[in-house]
Design a protein around this nucleic acid. Sequence first.
RNA 1: GCGCCUCUAGCUCAAUGGCAGAGCAACGGACUCUUAAUCCGCAGGUUCUGGGUUCGAAUCCCAGGGGGCGCACCA
Length: 506
Amino acid sequence: MDSSRRCRTASTTTSPGSPFKGCASSSSATSTPSRRRPGMADIPYRFERTRDCASLHQEFDGIDAGAETGTRVSVAGRLMLRRVQGKLAFGTLQDSSGRVQLFAGAAWTAEFEEFGKLSLGDWIGASGEVVKTKRGELSIKVDEWVLLAQARRQFPDKWHGLADVDTRYRQRYVDLWVTDESRRTLQLRSRIISGLRRWLEDRGFVEVETPVFHPLAGGATAKPFTTHHNALDIDLYLRIATELYLKRLVVGGFEKVFEIGRTFRNEGLSPRHNPEFTMIEVYEAYADYTDMMTLTESVVADLARDLLGTTRLSYGGRDLDLTPPWRRATLLELVEEHAGVRVDIDMPIDDLRVVAKEHGVDVQPEWGPGKLVLELYEKTTESELWGPVFVMDYPQEVSPLARPHRSRPGWVERFEPIVAGRELGNAFSELTDPDIQRQMFEAQAAAKAAGDEEAMAVDEDYLRALEYGLPPTAGLGIGIDRLVMLFADAHHIRDVLLFPTLRPEQ
RNA sequence: GCGCCUCUAGCUCAAUGGCAGAGCAACGGACUCUUAAUCCGCAGGUUCUGGGUUCGAAUCCCAGGGGGCGCACCA
C-alpha cells in the first residue's frame, strides 16, 4: 500500500463532551501533519455516536431540499463512496442500519484536505448538522470527523461489488459491506431465530442447552464427527441431533422445552447441506403429532407475517402460500397421487419389490417393506411435492424413535412438513414405551453391525430414562437454515450461513 | 466420490496461437451541490501451479490445486 496516506484525525479544537474527546491530534509538533501516516496511536478508543443512518432518514427525509435543521448529530460507519469536488466533498457513510451522505466543505470541515483523501472502506466518525443539499439528498454537514480504522486493503469495485462467490464466502467481512443481499439475508436469519425463540417463549416453552459432545451419536441416522477427550481418554461424537437429551428433559419434568442448536453430520456438501447446521427441536408433553402440525404451520406463518409482512411468498419464482391450515395427507395417499400405485406394507414383499423396481428404485435385498415404501415415496413423490403439505405416517421400520400409530399397525405417527419442495423438518408422537424402544434400538444396532454407518446404537441411559416414565409427548425438528432459505428466497445454504464450511485456502 | 464448466491487475471483465488490455479502485493534479460525480495524468501482471506441443501459449494438450453446476448421500 501507499505510504503517503495522510493523517485524517480530527483537530484538537474539540470541546469537552464532544464525541472527539480523547482523540489524538493530527497536528502534534513532531510530525508533518499532512504527510504523516496514521498510526494506531491516532485512533481513538471510543466514539460516541448519537444516531444511526436509518433513524436519520426516518426523522428527516421529509424536509425540503436546501433545508437546515439546526440538529447536530454524530454518526459512524464506513465510507463507501466519495465524490471530491474542489472545496466541497461528498461521501456516503454506511452503518449497520443503512447509508447517509456526508457533506464536507473547506469552509466548515476540520481537516478538509484529509477528508477528501479518505479511502473507500475507511471507518470514520463524523459530526455535524443534519441538512438537505440543494439536490435534495439528506446529509450530515460535517464539521468534525475522525478516522476510526483504515481500510488498508482496497475495497471491491464500488459498482460491481464481489462476483466471485468463493471470495464472498471466504471474506464475508467484505461481502457484508458490498453485497446488500448478503447483509439482508443474514440479518433476516438473526430475526428468524430471535422470532422463533420469542414465539415459543410466549407460549411457555423453555429454552435449554444440551451437550454437543455425545458418547453415542443418537437421535437421527447420520454419520457423526468423532473427537477425543484426553483427560477421560474417551472418544466422543459431535451431536447429530438434540432429540434424546431433550426427551430426557421431558422425563425430568421440562414439559415444554426447546433447543436451537448447531448440529453436525459428516456428510457431503451441497446447495442444501452444510456439515454443521442449525436445528430447532421442540418437545411438548401431553401433546401428539397433530398438535405439532398445528404448531408448525402457526409458527412458520406467524414468522412470515411478522418478518416479511405476508404468508404468500415466492420461492425461486414460484408461488408459495404458507397460510394455515396446510394440507395433511398420508405418505401412501401421496404416493398413489404421484406414482399412480397403491401400495402398503402388508402386501407381499415380492410385489412391493417389483413395484419399487418399476419406479426406478435400486432395491436392496435386506430392505423390509417399510424401507421399500419409503424409497418408493422418495423416488416418485417427494421431489414432486411443492407444499406446504404435511406428509403423515411413516413405516415403523424406518422410524425408530416414533410412537406406533394408534390405529395402523406397522406405521408410526410421524410427519414431515414439505415446503417449497423440500423437507423443512421432521416430527412425531414420541415413542414412550421402553420395551418397544429397546427393540427398535436393537434392530438399529444390528444394521450398524452389518455395516450401516448411519444406524443408531443402543442407548442404555436413554432406555433407563424411558423406564422412569416419559408421558405422551410430541416432538418437532426444523432445519433453521432451510427456513431462512425459504424466507430469503435463497437457493444455496451457503447464502444463509455467515461462514459456510469451505476447503481451507491454499 | 463421478461428469461438465471455470480460474487474466485490488475488484468487474476483454484479449480464441502472434506486442497482456479496459472500467472502477489506488497514486498525482483540476473542480463550491455531487449521487457509480466528471476531466487530465501516472502506475499496476509468476494470465492458479507444474510439465508438454509450437518459431511463438492467457489461449492447445497432460497432471495437480481452487471454485461453480449436476448426479449420488442427507436436514
